[in-house]
Amino acid sequence: MELTLSLGIGLLVGSGVWLIQRPRTYQVVIGLALLSYAVNLFIFSMGRLTNRLAPVIDTSVEVDPSAFVDPVPQALVLTAIVIGFATTALFLVVLLAARGLTGTDHVDGREPER
């Protein structure tokens, strides 16, 4: 399972890194979104992978910390997901505005000379 997920993270990072080096703004937006998936998964996996141990405690029995997955990375990632949405939105709007102002969707705001 660890191998599967780490390969998955690797693929997401590879695709993301490829995309953010592309010249078109839309590619960069998609690239950043893929990178944010990868980073969220990476941080999340710091708590190690376990099934069916969600950090929701049962009040009727005494809490045994080893019976739950680490909640801290989850708390970190939860806000990161929402912030990730916000930055994607911001970047999308910046690219729309740049497109409106410069007339091109090249990341530098002008088409390269050939």
Binding site: E2, S6, L7, I9, G10, L11, V13, S15, A38, F42
Partner: peptide, 8 residues
Amino acid sequence: GAGMAFVS
């Protein structure tokens, strides 16, 4: 990608 997969 390979590096991140390795580190993870």
